[in-house]
Computed example of a mutant assay.
Amino acid sequence: MLSAASRGVHLLGWKSYDAGQQGLAQRYYLQSYALATESGLRGHDGFVMRTMAMQGLKLHRPEHCLGLAETGLNRAKGQVDAQTEALFRVVHAHTLAKSGKHRAALAAVEHARALLTGAPGDEVPFWVLAWGPSVASVYSRTAKVHEAIGDHRAAAESYTLAATARPADTYARIVALDLVAGAEMHLKRCSIEQACVTWHRAIDHMDGVRSVRTRKAVSRMRGNLARFRVRGLRYVVDLDERGRGFLAGV
């Protein structure tokens, strides 16, 4: 019961995070951590620490994230199934990449992938399922590792894999955000046409979604397109118009 309560509070934290209320999200995560610790279920407390590390990375506060990710991983190793451990290891890889430890980060990514392929049929705990299949979460976080070390091509490929690995009807918001991130990687590679194609796919998945993050993503897209729009590129103009209509209707 304590573990189930922890997961519920964790979900409230994630909803607050998605709404842009970061302080409230952090308070929920701390409450979730306390409940998970009291539950005594192995690995659950470390999983909440993993989430707090992810939030710190998103807020560009990496100084404490490596310690959080390492502690969470140490609490999970040998206590959880291989797929769940892969989720811990790939977030640890991201914190390593953000700390400038690129070689160690890539090694941690490979370890996470090996865990996934080595035990694809493992039954994972209910408290790790909020983001969908473990493989999708590993791909998405792997993309962030490649992004952190400047390999935008590999990042775009991993974001695409993440988007296709989740059931789109159930996880439309997350799929859309992975595609947005992939489009931004294509843009950094100066592949504007591929970026536009991917942004269109992202907006396809935003229909019916109410999320501060998706709205910000489309606003950011329009800002990124501004320098191309003045060139009169038809596919850019069409996408920008679609983005404007999306924001007007949200």
Results as ranks from 00 to 15, higher is better:
11 L>T: 14
14 W>R: 09
14 W>A: 06
19 A>I: 05
21 Q>H: 10
21 Q>L: 12
21 Q>R: 14
22 Q>P: 05
22 Q>N: 06
23 G>C: 08
23 G>N: 13
23 G>D: 15
24 L>Q: 12
24 L>S: 05
25 A>Q: 11
25 A>C: 10
25 A>G: 02
27 R>E: 12
28 Y>E: 01
29 Y>W: 13
29 Y>G: 04
29 Y>M: 12
29 Y>I: 07
30 L>R: 12
33 Y>V: 00
33 Y>P: 01
33 Y>W: 14
33 Y>R: 09
33 Y>C: 01
34 A>K: 15
34 A>T: 11
34 A>V: 02
36 A>N: 02
37 T>P: 10
38 E>T: 07
39 S>H: 03
40 G>V: 07
40 G>I: 09
40 G>Y: 03
41 L>V: 12
41 L>W: 02
42 R>Q: 07
43 G>E: 07
45 D>A: 15
47 F>C: 11
48 V>I: 15
49 M>E: 10
49 M>Y: 05
50 R>K: 14
50 R>T: 00
51 T>S: 12
51 T>M: 15
52 M>H: 07
53 A>W: 00
54 M>R: 13
55 Q>N: 04
55 Q>T: 00
60 H>N: 13
61 R>A: 09
61 R>D: 03
61 R>I: 05
62 P>Y: 00
62 P>T: 01
62 P>K: 02
63 E>V: 02
63 E>T: 04
65 C>I: 00
66 L>R: 03
66 L>Y: 08
66 L>P: 05
66 L>K: 00
69 A>I: 01
70 E>L: 13
71 T>H: 09
71 T>Y: 05
72 G>M: 02
74 N>Y: 06
74 N>M: 12
75 R>F: 04
76 A>L: 08
77 K>Q: 13
77 K>H: 09
78 G>I: 06
81 D>R: 03
81 D>F: 02
81 D>L: 03
82 A>S: 13
82 A>C: 10
83 Q>L: 09
84 T>Q: 08
84 T>Y: 04
84 T>S: 14
84 T>K: 09
87 L>D: 11
87 L>T: 00
87 L>R: 14
90 V>R: 15
90 V>Y: 12
90 V>F: 09
90 V>H: 05
91 V>D: 08
92 H>K: 01
93 A>N: 10
94 H>E: 14
95 T>R: 05
96 L>V: 00
96 L>I: 03
96 L>F: 05
96 L>T: 04
98 K>T: 08
99 S>W: 07
99 S>R: 06
100 G>R: 10
101 K>D: 09
103 R>S: 10
